[in-house]
Nucleic acid binder design. Structure first.
Lengths: 200, 200, 200, 200
DNA sequence: TATGAATGAGGGTTCATTCAT
DNA sequence: CATGAATGAACCCTCATTCAT
């Protein structure tokens, strides 16, 4: 990578990070491009050298940040020495939920537009900075489980949507229950979902 | 209700309905107050006699339309002659999913900001026009089920969030599967959720 | 006309006049909407209540000002007691050329985009303020001439385009000759054009 | 001409040609310098090594392209074996009108700012690429006519402005008549103009 | 109550021009 | 000579909100 390219990448990350801070603190709608460039210390025109508009930034950030989060969870899992497939997924779920509970800005930012479509693209394609790929990690976990599964993708979809949407409500509003109260219910339901997808 | 009050209510409903049409057809962000009042045939100032701003309208509509949808499903259920509790919930789930699939504008409008908090307020308090109450209906179904449940509210929460978020993805993007392919998975999972909440 | 309507018309004329001053002094391209509203003493948004954009203003002004100019010439003609058709047209030509020579801002403003199409619309439809119609005047002159003409519209077209474009160059650049030197040539040519359209 | 100079000239022509394509296809106002350099495949800064701004390019192009057009007409005339002066001018007029009718982009580009001043400079001074000179050609035609003329320059001026401005309207808008309908009128008028300038 | 003309801050976007490499 | 990233002033336009009628 040439010096110029590196410089370019630094400028882009600078913009991304500052945009992320603003998005998570005051929300996307209330963040203007003027805000972003001012915080990043560059001229307005510079923004348009790197991004099409605000939503271009948003999409890249969602992909990027989600990817980081899941890979972080996966790295933690590797150190946790869990062997059972169910336990491993539960571990990841807990890890992600705890992280999001500790960073509500990130949660509300990711959640608003994290469709499965975006999510999958995220997991599949290595993002700007990470050279990783959660899809491969998931596949590895499936292989190491000792089972065969029907529709493993749908299984993951059900789990992520369930955990994501209930987790959002619990963390943001403690409604209808707090995250701690929610977790046992979730754990049981996730185990059910896994079992009902095991091929007999 | 006096004549003046009736007139006021009519004006308000006129604005609500026209706003709803615009919200579901072109989206909330791209709908301006100017659009709403023009379509409704009233002056701009009049809008502010009835609503604080666009989001005031939005919140009332979400509550109202969600309520209608669930009560419609419940009315249909009454004609369906189903007795088993599981079957009855599945029926409602199917009914709602099919309605939303047939009206994607409504789906994306409701979904974007339908937190459990809003939803619960909806179900509990009779809205502007309906004099009904889905919470009472749900309670009745629980009573008639012949079972006792642990945390019935959490149970409903899990089901609604799961069905809502996976349904959204399937209907809007057919990703990762179409609604028809999703339904069997959902049905099985919902039954699991119900069973794990039955008090032994 | 109601009081409100009158007020509205005054506001519009205020904007038109100020825009005209700017257009003729600094040119259309260098005149911004910000300039216009500042000079007119109204808010930016007000501009858009009356006009689509800068070019909307321009078109209305061209029509309006051209119309005024020709009708002024026609009014002067009526006082001049000329009877011969050729002399009358020459009179109008001279009048218009002298006016434009005395007001180069108006000339360059009108000339740039005064296509025959715009001109004809102008002459035909009474404009914002004038209730007059040069086309009718021209027709009257034809009737009173005692001749019959082949293609009188084309005849007028030839004269106007010839006089307009040569006049522009003479007045603005004195190139290749001054207006005074040009006039005899023009007069002779215009008389030729008229004669060649007289029906035998 | 040195190798370096040749290279410089090639770069310049590359920019001119690409600018011309853009000017005639999308118009001058909507063509940005970014567009030009992108199409030409050079860097933005390079543009400023050769031209002051967009209007510098425009002026050079108008002169260049007009010159080409007239010399092309003159070359065609030489092959046409016409002897009468009137016929020869009419031939050139028709040739130019037909060319412009076939290339409306060129017409609207040339016309907008083709003042007589620019035109004369064009005819007189050999341009960037052509080593020709329409003024000399016109003088030769006058000499070969067998007549003497009063103010031959004004005569040409009248003809060019008349033909140019009426031709523009006919070609671009077919208003008030099509080019084919216009031509006989023009021919007759042009012959009149010539005759009235013949010295007795 | 109802109106709708007027406001003006604020948004997004473009683009000619510069200058360090 | 050539580059092209960076600049930032300038632009157009939208729109929620107010208030005199």
């Amino acid at each position: 990578m040439g010096k110029a390219d590196q410089n370019k990448k630094r400028k882009m990350e600078n913009l991304l990070n500052n945009a992320f801070d603003l998005f998570t603190s005051k929300g996307i709608n209330k963040t203007s491009i003027a805000d972003i460039v001012e915080k990043a210390g560059v001229a307005k025109g510079t923004f348009y050298l790197y991004f099409k508009d605000k939503y271009d930034v948003k999409n890249r950030l969602i992909a990027h940040k989600s990817s980081l989060l899941f890979m972080e969870a996966y790295e933690a899992l590797k150190k946790a020495n869990l062997t059972a497939f169910e336990d491993r997924l539960i571990f990841i779920m807990d890890y992600v939920l705890d992280k999001l509970a500790a960073n509500k800005g990130l949660l509300s930012f990711i959640y608003k537009d994290l469709s499965w479509a975006v999510f999958k693209r995220t997991l599949t394609s290595p993002s700007i900075t990470t050279e990783v790929d959660f899809e491969a990690a998931y596949k590895k976990m499936l292989d190491e489980s000792g089972y065969e599964f029907n529709d493993p993708e749908v299984m993951l979809f059900l789990i992520i949507e369930l955990v994501g949407s209930t987790g959002y409500s619990s963390i943001m509003y403690e409604d209808p229950v707090s995250l701690d109260e929610l977790k046992p219910h979730l754990e049981e339901t996730v185990r059910s979902i896994i079992r009902q997808h095991i091929k007999q």
